[in-house]
Structures are given as structure tokens and as C-alpha cells.
Design a protein around this nucleic acid. Structure first.
Lengths: 190, 190, 190, 190
DNA sequence: TATGAATGAGCCTTCATTCAT
DNA sequence: GATGAATGAAGGCTCATTCAT
């Protein structure tokens, strides 16, 4: 693995453990096994790391979603699998997820983040579009807007569960079911 | 206004302007018009300020929501007003909101935050309960869980709009309408 | 002695030993017997120290000049004493002198430096004016300009001697005499 | 042009723009169009570059002086042209000049610098010697010493003008005239 | 209670220099 | 000779916190 990737992976790891603001560059480079100065060969500043991390996080998220959602399943099932996937990501990348959506990172990179997120929004949009063509969801839906609402809903639901160290699996299951029902009704799925 | 309140108000003001991590205690006390050392008479550390801020923020949020949502309006209208209120709060307290939900503040205070948020969840729960009693929403709803989902949905929708400096009022209006439709369907409102 | 003065004196001392660019703030504060952070209570940056140092240096220079130049001596004698004084200062504050005239310090403070130097220029101007009134020097002299030339001449002469670690006292004496003759002729002194 | 020369020229250029201490080796090599490591094939350190620069600077200075001072002109005219030349150099190479005379560069290379400057001192000495032989200047002059005084005088006069961003051409002209008169009298030129 | 000068640990960043290719 | 990625020591500066008054 090249140095740049090692920096990003190391940063994600430590950010998950200690939070972002509390993580000095020195920790990142130590974990990455490189010298302090090397960091700045690849990123102009600590902040410039963020878009790269967001990108990797989106890739990870999409990989999990694509793996868990069965292309050929029924729509209801797909939604269930989608929820499972998002909850899994939220569970594993609690801190990072929070960062990415919180906008706490410098506003200078916000524009880049939209670009970075585009593929994920597109993926959900496509799923909705298929459903719309098959008339499985209500016709009044604006696909792009709704795809974002859907992602926001499920992610915030997952965060609510995991942010407070919920370890009761049953509680998680019930939350997922509630989201599932909520979402299916929202989409007007029969 | 006593010193403690002045500290909190000053902190909220500057956090909105400069972000939280970039706001030193020295700025807060300057704005509050007190001495540096005085801060520590009221808060044991900079971090200990956060729950107090969250509390005030929730109070502000509830004040706005209660003011904007007409108790006697029809359910659909109430939902619309609720969305308007949350969007307004998100617009004015972008950065703070982000903090509160992101859990970026020390995990030590997370428990307190749940307590702090309780009244807001209760308020929404009550609104849903009324609607449930009048059979205005589907019976399969779990009130408490759904109240959180609802808040999460609307807040994330608002953030998606305001995070990226959207100034196009028409765009905001469309987003609100989409959320409205989405939410009414989710609740099974006739 | 208060902290600000201690910083300035410490800085002058270490600058003389190690040069300016090679002196870290940490050395200055250690010598001054204060904490690193305290430095920044009195000077906004390392560079902001320079005008204060220049001021102290000018004060030191003027103190020596005023002490060594006998108000009631004859003009020729006064010039001799003036040269002695400048050579003494140059000998003791080699490095600092170099700094002050080299303009290596940030151009941002150059304007302040002119102000700082003003009293020294004035002092020499007054000496020349007295001589002019008594018709001891040529009438074609522009007092202000010439006072600066005179200072520049003597200081550069002293630097030429001391910059290269000249320890031969006889050599120094001859240089002084040459400057004396050069200067008296330049001024058209009879 | 070979690499060594390219390094020197590049260094002089950037030093003039940004100052010496603020110029990293990386900038020099970039401007010179060579690799970072290549620098150290020609100079053992950044500091070792200084004598080479001084040498080139002296060459440039002498080239300008020799070009501007008319060998066959009258002595008074020659002095005027000499002053013009030094002012021109000071104007163009402000920062570098300062370095060279300030001794701020490592004292380890000071000896070399004297050698480097020798030809310039010799040139002025020769001019004075010619004048002395023709009895155009006072006989009490010690040629070598006076040549250095003369250079010191004119350069400090030029620095005083250009250090403070004087752009008023008339002011510069007056300063030159004052120096001219001052110097002619100092030399006892009829 | 209130003050605010003082502290000093710790962070981000720069940059001269090295060395494997 | 030439390269340029990598190094890591060092420096300027910030800021939460303390404490004598």
C-alpha cells in the first residue's frame, strides 16, 4: 500500500478511536509508520485530509451497501437490507460518520464533499427509479430529493441507536423495524 | 442576566460565528465581559460548558417550535409548521446543531444530553399521540421511536439544504414540500 | 525589572551571542526566566520584538555618546569623542548594530524604526547646528542630511574594523584617526 | 550556463524577492530547474552558498561601477558617477547588500568575504591613487583606509534612502548631491 | 466572588539534509 | 552526476487552566 493510502487508513482508524480534533498529526504518522514531514508531502495540511477520508468512507459505505443489498430481491426486502447495511456502517464508523455529516470540517472543503457523495446518492436514486418504473412506490416522489431524505433518515436513525452505546441487540432490531415501516410508508410502497 | 447565563449566551454566539473548536475560552469571556478566571468559577472546564449549551439550545428550539406550531391547526398543517420551525432553527444554529448531534463533544457528557433532549422528544411524542388518538395516523406506529425518527429526518433534510450555503429560497421551499409529503406518508396520515 | 524589559534585555544578550535568526524564542524566555507563553503576552510575535530592541539600542547608544562627548569641548575634540563613542558601541553591540542597519528585519516595522532613530539624528543635528552657528563648519552643509551621513560613515567604519574580529588596538586607533581627518574635512572644519 | 552558476543566479533572484532567511533551498532549486539533491553536489550546505553569492555580487557591482565611471572624466565627475553607480546597485540589490555587510551569515565565512571584496577595494584605491598622484586630493589621505571609508559612506547613504521605500526621485537626487559635496570635501578635492 | 497575569504542554508546520535508485 | 521522496529535529505560537491578590 502506498504512503498516501496508509495515511488515510491510519487517520480513519485513529479518528474512530479519539475523535478528529483530538487527534494530532503526530499520532497519524506514527500509526502510518512514516515520518512527520512525509505527511505534508501528501496533504497540504491536516484539514486537507478530510475530503480524502470522506471519499474512502463513501467507498466503504457503498461497498457494504452493494454487498448486502440483493439486486434481485423484492423491493421491501431491498429496503430492509439497505437499512441493515447503513446500520452496520454506522456501528463500525460511528465517529467518522458523525464528522462527515456534521459539517464541522472546514467549510472550505464542503463543495468537494458534495462531489464525493454523489455516487452514493446516485446509487439510491437508481434503486428508487427502478421501483418507480415498476410502480412499486408512489408517483409523487421526486427521486433525487427523496434519495437524500432516505439516506438522512436511516443514518440519523442508526446514529441515534449507536451514539449512546446501545448494546441491546433487541433494541437495535426494533429500531430497524420501525425505520423499515416508516420508510416503506414514506415511499408509498404497497 | 447573571454571569453563568452570560457565559452561555456568549459561547453560543461565538460558536455560531467561528465554530466550536476554533473558539478559545478567552473569546468567550471577552464577549461575556468577565475575567478569564471567572469562567472556571461556573464551569469546571471548557467541555463542561457543552451540556449547558445543549440545554439552552433545546430551550430555544422548543420555544421556536411551540411558537410556530399552532396547537389548534389541523394535523397536516401542524406538520408543515413543524418543518418550517426546524428549518428555521437549522438555518440559524447550523454549527451548534451539528455539534449537538455529532457527539463530537466528549463522550462523558452524552448521558446528560439525552436528558436534555427529553423534553423535545416528549413534545413531538405528544403531538403524535394526539394524532394517534384521533386516528389521524397509522396505528402501527411506535410513538417514542417515531418521534425521534421524525426529528432526525427533518433535521437532516434541513442540514442538507443549509450546509451547502443554499440561498435559493425556491430550492428550500421544494425541499420542505418533499419532506412534508414524505413525512405524511411515513406517518400514514390521510 | 518588569517582564517586558527582561524579555528585551534577554533578547539583546542572546542576539549578540547567536545572531537573530538563530535565536529561538525558547532561548529568550529561558534567559529571561519566564514561561514561553508569557513572551506572547508582551509581543505579538518574535518579529514584533525588533522595534523594542532598536529603541533600547538607540537609548544605549545615546547614553554612551552623551556620556563620552564633552559638551564644552572644542568641535574637533567633540568629533573625536563622538567617533570613540560610536566605535565603543559597535564593539559591544556588533551583531545588533548590523541587524538594525541591515533592514533584514521585516519591512513591516521599518517605519517605526525611523521614529526610533529620530532622537539620535536630532542629537547629531544639534551638534552640527551649533558648529554652523559658530561658523566652524562649511556653510553649504544641509544639517539633517549630513547628520545621517556622518552617522553612517562612522558606524560603517567601526563595523569594518570590528566585524572581522580585529583585536589589534593600534589598527583601531589608526582607523579612528583616518575617520577623524576624513570627517573634519568633509564638514569643512577649520 | 552550468548548474552551479544556475544555482547562484537563482538564489540571488529569490533572495532579492523574499529575503535570505525566508528562502528555502527548495525554492532555489525549483527556480534553478534542478533537483533538490543536486544542490548538495555543488554546495555542502545552504550556508556555503553565501561566499559564492558575495563573489558574484561583487562582480556585478564592479561591472556596474566600471561601466558607469568614465575613466577619462575629471575627478569630480568620476566621484559623481561613482555615487550614481553605488546608488543603482543599492537600489537593485538592497537585501543582498544588507546581507553581505551585516555579517549575519555564519562567521565561518567572514574571512573568505574579505578576499572576495578585495578587488572592489582595490579598484577604489586605484582611483584614489591616481588622484593623489595628480595632487587632486589632500596628501594626508591613507589610500586603502580611505577607499573603505568612501565605500562605506556612499553605501550607507544609499541604504538610508532606499531602505525606507523612498520613491521621490528628487529626494534621491538631493541625497546624492549632499554625498558628493561631503565626499569631495572629505577627500580635500579642489 | 472576581480578577487577569502567568504558565507550559502540545500542536502544526517548515525545511536542511540524506540516500536509494 | 542527478534525482526527489523521505526524514525528523526544531520552531513559532495557542490556549486551557491555575493562583496570588
Amino acid at each position: 500500500m502506498n504512503k498516501k493510502e496508509r495515511i488515510i487508513e491510519a487517520a480513519i482508524d485513529i479518528f474512530r478511536e479519539n475523535g478528529i480534533e483530538k487527534t494530532p498529526v503526530s499520532s497519524i504518522v506514527k500509526r502510518a509508520g512514516i515520518a512527520q514531514g512525509t505527511f505534508y508531502l501528501y496533504f497540504s495540511s491536516k484539514l486537507a485530509l478530510m475530503p480524502a477520508i470522506a471519499e474512502v468512507m463513501v467507498e466503504k459505505t457503498m461497498a457494504i451497501v452493494e454487498k448486502m443489498v440483493d439486486k434481485d430481491a423484492q423491493f421491501e426486502k431491498k429496503i430492509e437490507q439497505f437499512i441493515d447495511a447503513i446500520f452496520l456502517v454506522a456501528h463500525d464508523y460511528n465517529e467518522i460518520q458523525a464528522l462527515i455529516y456534521s459539517g464541522l470540517a472546514s467549510t472550505e472543503h464542503l463543495k468537494e464533499w458534495e462531489t464525493v457523495y454523489a455516487p452514493f446518492y446516485d446509487w439510491v436514486s437508481n434503486m428508487l427509479m427502478d421501483a418507480a418504473e415498476q410502480e412499486l412506490i408512489r408517483s409523487s416522489i421526486h427521486i433525487e430529493r427523496t434519495s437524500k431524505l432516505m439516506i438522512g433518515l436511516v443514518e440519523s436513525a442508526a446514529e441515534q441507536v449507536y451514539l449512546y452505546d446501545v448494546t441491546d441487540e433487541n433494541e437495535v432490531k426494533k429500531q430497524k423495524e420501525e425505520v423499515h415501516r416508516f420508510l416503506l410508508h414514506a415511499l408509498g410502497a404497497q
